[in-house]
Amino acid sequence: MTKSGKVIVYAILILVLLAAIFPIWWIFATSLETSRRAYSFPGALWPNGTLHNYIQAWAAGPWLHFLANSVGIGIVTTLLVLMTSVLAAYGLVFVPNRATRIIFGAILATMMVPFYSIIIPDYLIVKDLGWLNHGYIAQIVPFAANGFSVFLLMQFMRSLPKELWEAARMDGTSTFGYLWRIVIPNLKPALATVSIYVFLLSWNAFLWPFIAVANPKFQPIQVGLANLLSTANGTNWTVLSAAAAFTAIPVLILYAVAQRSIVESVSRTGIKG
């Protein structure tokens, strides 16, 4: 690349960088600002550091509770998905028979179903089961398995050398013992990928908990923030920004710690089978 070409490339990259992170900066800049200065340009570009909005936002809802709900729902859902999809993928790859082939088709078919097209029956099923407004179960069980995770794990299991399986069978290892002692330890990157995928999906879930969970005691933090946004719409942006910061900060911390594996996992989910 020529020197001027390089300058242009860096200029583009830095401009895009500013566009990508300015809104995130703006959450914090606004939330650390007095409301008078927040409305004056360019006053809030560098905030004066008041914590007043955080105190006010904190009092506007049970944030710690919302947060605990989101984290708990995310972790439990992730563990359940890991369990159901490891078992299913294993059954499909290592102990196939005629019935499993049909089941494989059915599981693949669920990947084609957009959630918004089945949300009405799902809502009514959950209602008939008595799960509506009844704790966390409606937010967890319908998402405790997903076709994509099964599919992804199958791809990884297929790449394990066949000789390993034959040798273990010769040694008299049981089918389940092979899964537990050999397959799972060799599957760690795939399990990390599935975990991050499922946790982010669960953390970002909005419409489903919004309609299925009316009791604030069980609502995740996204719904809590959306409800604050609709009741306080257009009145107090500095306080709303502080509330938005509450939902963003846990993710930012997680991203700071595990940025590398998150980025790698997500690029891996994008690789075609």
Partner: peptide
């Protein structure tokens, strides 16, 4: 062997395919 598939299959049937 179907036991391996049962947990995932039940959930996907009830909440995705039947709906």
């Amino acid at each position: 062997n179907l036991w391996y598939l049962a947990p995932a299959l039940i959930i996907l049937l009830v909440f995705w395919l039947v709906p």
